[in-house]
Design a protein around this nucleic acid. Structure first.
Lengths: 194, 194
DNA sequence: AAACCGGATTGATTTAGATCAAGCCGATTT
DNA sequence: AAATCGGCTTGATCTAAATCAATCCGGTTT
C-alpha cells in the first residue's frame, strides 16, 4: 500500500524518492481501512486526519437546514481527503466525509505532517504542486457554478471528471453540480438524444 | 511601497523578515502602476505577472458566448492577482484582469518567483499559508454557489466580504455571486426591510 | 417467488430568478 | 443648464429548474 503512495509522489513531483526520504513518509502515515458507509469525519467534530486514498471512493458533504445534502467534493484513488480548515485550525467541522466504497487509506495527523515537512524537501514540493492544482480546479468549478446552465454543468462534468460519471449514482452527481436528481436525469436524456 | 509588502510578509508569516532576506523580495518585485479601466491581463494572452496589490482594487472575469461577464474574483489591498494556470503553464488565459481603481502593484514573473522560493525560506512559507487560506475560501464559495438561494448568497457576501459591499458597484457584486443586477437589487431591498 | 430497497425516470405543477423594458438619480461633461 | 452616462430600481412577463408525486427497474433479502 505504501508503494502506491511512493509511486504517486514520484509521479507528481517528477522525481525518484530515495529509500531514506521515503522512510519519513512511512513513519508519518499509517494504514486505515474504512468500509462503505463508514465515516472518516462527522459534522461537529474536529478533523484529525489527512487521508491519501490508496483504494476506494469517498464524498465530502454538508447538510443544510432543510436536511438536504450538498456534496462539495468527491475523492478517488490518489486523491486526498480532509477538511483542511478543521484539520489545521482544530475547529469543529461543518462537513461529513463518508466512504462510498470500501477504502484503503493512508492517514496522517497535523503534527506528523508538520514534522514531515521539515524532514522531506519533496513533501514540501508535493504540497505546493497539489495546492496549485486544487486552486486552479476550484477556480474553474466556481466559474461553472456561477455561470453555467444545467446542461452546461453536465457537459462540464463529462469533460472534467469523466471518471465520476459511471462510478457514482446520479443523485450524488446532481448534488455535486448543484442540481436536483430530476433535472440531472432530464438533461442527461436530452444530451443522449443529441 | 515595498514596506507595505514587508509589513504584509511579517503579518502573514508571524515573523520579522531580515533586511537581507527582504532584499531578495526587492530584487524579485518591481513597481507597476495601472490606471482605472486598464488591464493587467487580456483574455487570450499569457499571464506574465503575479501582482501584489499595494493600493487599489481589481477584478478577474470571463466573458461567455452571450457576451455576459462573470466575475470570478475581486482583489484589493494585500491580495494577489494573477491567472495562476496561465502564469505557471504559460498557456493563453480565459480571463481578463482589470483595474477598478487606480492601482499600485508590485509585480514579479514566474522565473523570479522560482528563484525567490530558493533564496527565501519565508517566501515558501508565505506561499504555503496563502494556498491554505485560498483553498478554504474557495471551498466555502463553492458550497455557497451550489446550495444557497439568492438571499442566502447576499448574506454570505455581507458576512464573508463586507469590504466589498460599499467598494464595488452592485452589478459587479451580483456577477460575483452569480445573480443578475435586478435580482440583487430586489433581494437587497427585502433584506433592508427586515 | 414475493417483498423490499435504492435509484432513475417521467409527468404535472409551481416558483425563484432571469429577462425585457422603462424610468430614475446623481455625477460628470460640454 | 442641458446632455450624457453609469448604475440602480421597479414593474411585467417568461422560463429554467425545483418541487411534488407516481411509477419503474434491477438487485438483494427473506
Amino acid at each position: 500500500m505504501y508503494n502506491l503512495l511512493r509511486a504517486y509522489i514520484n509521479k507528481v513531483t517528477f522525481s525518484t524518492i530515495s529509500d531514506e526520504e521515503f522512510s519519513f513518509f512511512e513513519e508519518a502515515f499509517s494504514i486505515k481501512k474504512v468500509k462503505k458507509r463508514q465515516f472518516l469525519l462527522h459534522e461537529g467534530s474536529i478533523c484529525r486526519y489527512m487521508a491519501f486514498i490508496a483504494k476506494g471512493a469517498m464524498r465530502q458533504y454538508t447538510i443544510d437546514e432543510k436536511g438536504i445534502e450538498h456534496i462539495v467534493r468527491f475523492g478517488i484513488e490518489e486523491w486526498w481527503m480532509s477538511d483542511r480548515e478543521s484539520f489545521l485550525s482544530l475547529t469543529p467541522s461543518r462537513y461529513n466525509i463518508e466512504a462510498l466504497e470500501d477504502c484503503d487509506l493512508l492517514v496522517s495527523t497535523n503534527e506528523k505532517l508538520t514534522s514531515l515537512r521539515n524532514q522531506s524537501q519533496l513533501f514540501a514540493k508535493l504540497g505546493q504542486i497539489l495546492d496549485e492544482k486544487s486552486y486552479i480546479a476550484s477556480q474553474k468549478r466556481i466559474e461553472m457554478t456561477i455561470s453555467y446552465s444545467a446542461e452546461e454543468k453536465l457537459l462540464f462534468l463529462m469533460e472534467n471528471s469523466p471518471q465520476f460519471i459511471h462510478r457514482f449514482p446520479q443523485n450524488m452527481l446532481a448534488s455535486y453540480l448543484g442540481l436536483t436528481p430530476e433535472t440531472f436525469s432530464r438533461v442527461r436524456k436530452q444530451l443522449l438524444i443529441k
